[in-house]
Every structure is written in C-alpha cells, then in structure tokens.
Amino acid sequence: MMETTNPNVFAGYFPTWCPGCGDFGIWASIKGALAKLGYSPEEMAVVFGIGCSGNMNDFLWVDSFHALHGRAVPNAVGIKIANHKLPVLAIAGDGDCYGEGGNHLIHACRGNHDITILVHDNRVYGLTTGQVAPTGLKGFKAKSTPQGVIEVPVNPVALAITQGATYVAQGFAGDINHLTDLIVEGVKHKGLSLVNVFQPCVTFNHVTTYAWYRERLYKLTVQNHDPKDMKKALDKSLELDAHIPIGLIYKSERPTYTDCLPQISKETLVDAGLGFTKDDSSAMLQKFVPEFL
C-alpha cells in the first residue's frame, strides 16, 4: 500500500448528477477515502448498484462491477470470498439496498463479510424520477404514492446492528471530511461495515433537504457516545427526528466469514484456481473416486 494517493487518479467522467446533488459530496468523500487509504485504482474492487448512486460507476475509475438493481451486496460478498485479500466496497442507493436487495443486507450482516457497504440515503428513487424509497418519511407524497406513503421508514442502522454488522456509521453528504473518515475506518474495519449516508436529492425530495439535515444533525464523539455498547448504539439508531446522530454508531469485533474458512487460510480461492492444472485434476479424482467403487 502506498502512502497517500492523489484523489484525482480515481476520477472518471465528469458526473451527470443534478447540480447540487448530495452525490457529489459522497463522490468526493470516496475519492478522498481511497486516497487516504493509499490504494491505487487496481488495488480494490467496487461494486455499484443501479440508481443515480450507481451511476458513479462512470465517475469513479477503479476496478469495478456495475451490478443489477438490488444485487451489489451479493456480488461484493462473492468477490470477497474469491479474493479475501482485495478490499471490496459496495455502493448502492436506499431503494437498491434496503428495498430491492433488503434480504441480501440482512444476510451479509449475519455473515460479517469483510466488505464496506455505502448507501446513498436520499429517501427517494432518484433515477426513476422520485418515487418514495424504503427510507422515505411516512406520508411522503410522490408519483407512486400521491396520497402519501403508508409504510413507516426502515431503520437501516438498527437493522444492521441487530443482524450482525460489526461497523455501523451514519454520515452526511454535506460534510465531506467527516464522511471521508467514516469511509476510511469502515474499509479498514475487518468485518461488515455499513455507512448510511444522508444524501439530499435536490430534484425530487423537498422535505429532507440540506437545511432539514443541518437543523437536526449532531456528531457523535467519545464524549457523547460509546460505539462498543450495543444497547447505547441501538438508542442512537432510534434518534430519527429532532436530533439525528452522525458518526460511528456501533463497532464490535467478530471473525469475518472468510476467517472461518480453513480451506483459504493459505491462499485465496483465486490463486488456488489460477494454479489449478491437469495434475490437480487427476489428484482430485484419486481422492474422490474411491468412495464410488
């Protein structure tokens, strides 16, 4: 790993997001975090979901897999199992990760797969022109819910903590430096990291705007929170209204999924597979044919 890289090595095309979109802040934070981590664009793998968020695939130049809507997480898990030495980041929207792919999030947390999931939480479906997302506030009116959404929002932070994620943080697209550090720590953390990022959608969400967040957000520090205490973390995850915390909410240590696989303790699956020859093939038969005789 290098010292610090220049964030511009990660820049792809110039973004097509609406001017003022919170995604710009997230983009800057990701580039900043990768630079701080000292990665080159080929020293990690990034999986993108489908949405305005996922469109970052063209704006961030790294080894990447642009997945299907909802499926970035299982792709990321597969990449990690294949090559557990490679840092893996999944970038998704709230519709993507908490709606279409909600099941995958739960099970990725349970497995404590060593990946970082970064979710653009704008409480709407940006790319499909503003329908309500699973994090949409109750009563939110949009094209698919003209009378206001009946369901209450999902609580991604509480969900991740209770399902077994070992690093759960919340950031704000309007605070790039703070978010950058949350991403750096999330990637460094060994285990499943979820970074839920409040992201104003200036085009389709006129409720949870920059101003709305600025009135409510406050930062968690060592003075006001102990992220190692699960009960306190859950308390923080329930602050959703007048005061909303950003920062590291929960952190614990548990062996990752690949830590528990003795068959890859010596070499990654990719290396084992790349070195596989005809002789290995015969050796497999020698080992496994006798039981059928």
Binding site: A45, V47, F65, A67, L68, G70, R71, P74, N75, A76, V77, G78, I79, K80, I81, A82, N83, L86, N103, H104, I106, H107, L261, P262, Q263, I264, L269, V270, A272, G273, L274, M284, K287, F288
Partner: peptide, 29 residues
Amino acid sequence: AEKSGMVVKHAEDEISVINMALGASWAGV
C-alpha cells in the same frame, strides 16, 4: 469442500446465489 479446497456457500436465496457466483467469477474464480 475442506478436503478439495473449494468454498461451498448456502446463500439466502437464489438471486443471491447467482450474484455471489458472478462476483467470484469476475474476481477470477
């Protein structure tokens, strides 16, 4: 699995199944 050096995963649903496999395959396995 252990004896052959393979990883065998029972995933949460078939959508995850194929997407995990595609992730791993893209990674070279």
